[in-house]
Design a protein around this nucleic acid. Structure first.
Lengths: 342, 342
DNA sequence: AGTTAGCACTCAAACACCGCGAGTGCTAAA
DNA sequence: TTTAGCACTCGCGGTGTTTGAGTGCTAACT
């Protein structure tokens, strides 16, 4: 659906004015804002046209126009260009992401935090998924007479640990036996191949040892599950309650939505690669019908690993926000890369 | 401040009626509710008396009475007795706390979750503090060419790990050297004694090795910090937004308050031992002036280790809620005990 | 002295009404 | 195609009005 240049200009002006003012914008205000040399009546004709085509909406007869979801969509797709963030802002983001960043998890929780602080909205990041990773190493640490910790290190650099308890007394000899046998069995195996059936076949190969091993294997399975599962950081969801752009009930529903990690992970999993903007009902969740979601992905070693997202009101400064999300995501990605590669 | 029996009866009826109905309660309704064989005028006299003494309040002249903070206080301190929870409820709580409970952290996050689900309010638990613990063991795991994981096991059963990176290439020999030297230096040392100064003295004793050790020591310091710090689970804070007892702005402030872990940890740290109920402003935070907080502590090996708390509106069924919090806390405590002792 | 019936009084909540002003759509002329 | 002019619409804020629940007070009763 193409729009004439003048219509584009007017639509852009309506959206941007509305984004900043929050009130329906009328024909008069648009004269100066667009710089067009026409009367208010002409603008009104164009506005009526845009409304007929579904880009704008009148809240009530005697009010100005407000963008519809379709209007925002057109604006986001055609009318904005990447803004360049100030150097100050960039280095602020960098610093915040770096502080105390000893592991990917920390980097990503920092990322969510700084985005939510800067935008005043809610930010979500997912830790790298281990879905394509393999077992790099398994280690065991004795933690008590009957307790042990299994440490799983994956090829994509995630470290997951799981305590477990066994009937017998754990001795250093036993543990180094675990270590040897299990590393032989597991190193290099893709995580997604490790399931109950696989464990059973491994267990069987141990012969009479396998009785000892049941608890150990279970602990490993659990760590593998942990490593496959993306964990989710949500930061600043409370912010939404304080935004004037939301009515309180709308924000409340968004929080409800975000508090269920099931929802969040399916929302973000739709995003294969690159940046996307979901506007209102496009996401498919009625709780988000008054919200927009900006999602982008980050990569580790040329492979999409996780997502960085921002959730906020439909009435938002898309231009800046998209740039910020992308910048933060890229930087986090770079940092994780450095952490793991070397 | 003692109250005559009839006044007590009336106060109790007002509180309980108000808790359930949410509207100011008038003299007529109290006749049947108290079972007192008096007229409404008599009740009115008593009500006026209770109001003069600060237990009740009239929202406006032509309305019934509502409990004040002082009224709730008297009710909680003198007018309720521990209710016995149904067996069904008890076993529900037990099951929920047990599932997947491989570590204290998990038990406590389960505890927060089940309490928030059952009450529809927000629940907080803190993981055991390592403030009185000692180093039980330190282990190292090679995770990459230049990266390592330090695993700290404390005397109170907490396991904290920290990745770190070093300039040189980590070899098994180096790591077993770390292991040996550092365990000699650290095992049995109280966590709270481990600070920069301590590390420096340890480092110095290594002589020329100490150059190698800087990063390692730093990683240990960080794990120790982690182990000393209670981490906080908050579950169900979004619930508060859906409670009719709150006006939305009140709930919003509570959420804001809860989202700052600084606030939460000082709130809970006031509680040395046993159950306490903070009503409204008693907590000292204006954000909680419309809320009540029930806190109790759990113990590990006869030592207070952490807190279990519930945050909700002032208008709440204290009798049941207190019982639930205490029951859940006791059960979690028992479970952690079992997990660690054996 | 405590209790009660009766009554005048108060005040929040719900509802209707009204004037304003911003902004519109339409029409007829340029 | 654009424009000036004009009648029209409707949300918003402010102002009565009514209703009803619940009170405090007083004077009589036990």
């Amino acid at each position: 659906m193409e729009l004439r240049e003048r219509k584009q200009k007017i639509l852009k002006a309506v959206v941007e004015n509305y984004i900043h003012s929050g009130v329906a914008v009328g024909s008069k205000a648009l004269i100066e804002q667009t710089g067009l040399n026409v009367s208010s009546a002409t603008i009104r004709n164009e506005l009526a046209d845009l409304e007929r085509n579904g880009y704008l909406l009148q809240p009530h007869t005697s009010a100005g126009r407000v963008p519809t979801q379709k209007g925002y969509r057109y604006y986001v797709d055609n009318l904005i260009k990447g803004s360049n963030l100030s150097d100050r802002l960039k280095s602020h983001i960098e610093n915040a992401i770096e502080t105390g960043a000893d592991a990917p998890e920390r980097i990503l929780s920092n990322t969510a935090q700084v985005l939510s602080k800067l935008t005043g909205m809610a930010s979500i990041t997912t830790t790298p998924s281990g879905i394509n990773a393999r077992v790099h190493k398994i280690r065991f640490v004795i933690t008590g007479r009957h307790t042990c910790m299994a440490v799983l290190i994956t090829s994509n650099g995630m470290v997951k640990s799981r305590l477990f308890r066994v009937e017998f007394v754990v001795t250093p000899e036993l543990v180094s036996m675990f270590d040897k046998v299990l590393n032989e069995a597991f190193v290099g195996v893709p995580l997604k191949d490790i399931d109950r059936a696989f464990l059973q076949s491994v267990g069987a190969s141990f012969g009479e040892l396998s009785l000892f091993m049941a608890d150990v294997l279970f602990a490993i399975l659990d760590s593998v599950k942990q490593a496959m599962q993306q964990s989710i950081n949500i930061s600043g969801s409370t912010n939404l309650l304080f935004l004037s752009e939301y009515d309180m009930l709308g924000a409340r529903d968004v929080l409800k939505f975000l508090s269920d990690s099931e929802n969040v992970s399916t929302l973000l999993s739709e995003n294969i690669k690159g940046t996307k903007v979901f506007l209102g009902k496009e996401s498919g969740y009625y709780e988000l019908s008054g919200s927009m979601v900006i999602t982008t992905t980050y990569e580790i070693g040329n492979q999409t690993a996780g997502a960085v997202a921002l959730v906020g009101p439909l009435r938002a400064d898309y231009q800046t926000l998209i740039s910020m999300v992308e910048y933060a995501s890229d930087y986090a990605s770079k940092l994780i890369g450095e952490l793991l590669e070397v």
